[in-house]
C-alpha cells in the first residue's frame, strides 16, 4: 500500500531539523524492510504571529510503499521516534495517510492550501483527519504540529507544492550538461524553464553546487533560468534560490 508520512513542528533553533527527522524515519522504513520510500518534500505553511512555529513553519512529507502488515508498526515507530527525537519545547505532529483509502482527496488538498493562508486550529485538523480516515497524532508540547502534518499530506497530494529535500548530484564536463543527461543521471522528471516549457534533451545547462528540484504536476522538476553572457554560449543555468523559494 502507498502511504504518505508527514511530520511538523519537531525542532528548535539548535536541534536537528524536521527534514532530518523525516529522513531518519524514511531510512528506518527502508532498513527494516517495511517498504520503499521516495524523496522528502518540504511544504511552506503560513507565517503568522498567531502561529507558534520555530523559525519557518514548514512540514516534511514523503511517500512510502509498504506491506499492509507494517502500517501499525510504522505509525508506532514514528510516534515513539518523535517523542524521543523532537526538541524538548517543540510541538510535534504526525500524519500517516493510506493514499487509496483517503475518503475525499480534494478536501484534503484544499485543507493543505488553506494552511498556507489561514490560521487553523488543532480541533479542525483532528476533525478533518477523522472524517477522511487518516492517522493524525501529537507527540509533545501543545501538539500544534498536527495542523502542519495534515496540511503537508494534502499539499504533497496536490502534486504542486514544495521543494524536494536534498540536492541532486550530476556529473558534467566543466559543469555543463544537457537536459537529457540530467534526466538520465537523476530521478528528475523534467528540466523546465520559468515560462513552463520543458527543455529539449540536447539543450545545455550550466550547473552549480545547488541543484534542487520542486514538486510540480506530481513530478520532480528542475527549474532553470536563462544565463547572461555565458562564456560557452550555454543558455540555461540553475534557478536562483529566491525564485526556488517562491515556487516551493
Amino acid at each position: 500500500m502507498r502511504i504518505l508520512v508527514c511530520i511538523d513542528d519537531t525542532d528548535n533553533m539548535e536541534s536537528k531539523g524536521t527534514g532530518e527527522l523525516a529522513e531518519m524515519i524514511a531510512e528506518h522504513i527502508e532498513t527494516s524492510n517495511w517498504g520503499k520510500t521516495t524523496r522528502i518534500t518540504r511544504h511552506q505553511l503560513l507565517v503568522h504571529p498567531d502561529i507558534p512555529y520555530t523559525s519557518h513553519n514548514s512540514s516534511m512529507c514523503f511517500e512510502a510503499d509498504i506491506d499492509t502488515s507494517y502500517l501499525r508498526v510504522l505509525i508506532d515507530f514514528a510516534a515513539d521516534f518523535l517523542v524521543r527525537e523532537s526538541a524538548p519545547e517543540s510541538d510535534p505532529g504526525l500524519c500517516v495517510a493510506v493514499i487509496d483509502q483517503i475518503d475525499d482527496v480534494d478536501t484534503l488538498i484544499k485543507y493543505g492550501h488553506r494552511a498556507k493562508q489561514d490560521v487553523m486550529t488543532k480541533k479542525e485538523a483532528y476533525n478533518m483527519a477523522e472524517r477522511l480516515g487518516i492517522h493524525l497524532s501529537e507527540h509533545g508540547g501543545t501538539g500544534q504540529g498536527v495542523i502542519g502534518a495534515l496540511a503537508g499530506v494534502g499539499l504533497r497530494l496536490s502534486g504542486n507544492d514544495g521543494r524536494f529535500k536534498g540536492k541532486h548530484k550530476i556529473n558534467g564536463i566543466n559543469d555543463i550538461v544537457t537536459a537529457g543527461e540530467i534526466l538520465s543521471q537523476t530521478d528528475i522528471d523534467a528540466v523546465r524553464c520559468l515560462d513552463g516549457n520543458d527543455l529539449d534533451y540536447n539543450d545545455k545547462v550550466r550547473l552549480n553546487d545547488w541543484v534542487k528540484s520542486v514538486l510540480l504536476e506530481g513530478k520532480c522538476v528542475l527549474i532553470v533560468s536563462p544565463t547572461e553572457n555565458d562564456p560557452d554560449g550555454v543558455k540555461w543555468q540553475m534557478c536562483p534560490k529566491k525564485i526556488l523559494k517562491s515556487l516551493g
Partner: peptide
C-alpha cells in the same frame, strides 16, 4: 548557516 532545506539566499 541553517540546514540545507531552509537555505533561500544565493
Amino acid at each position: 548557516l541553517d540546514v540545507e532545506d531552509e537555505i533561500v539566499a544565493d
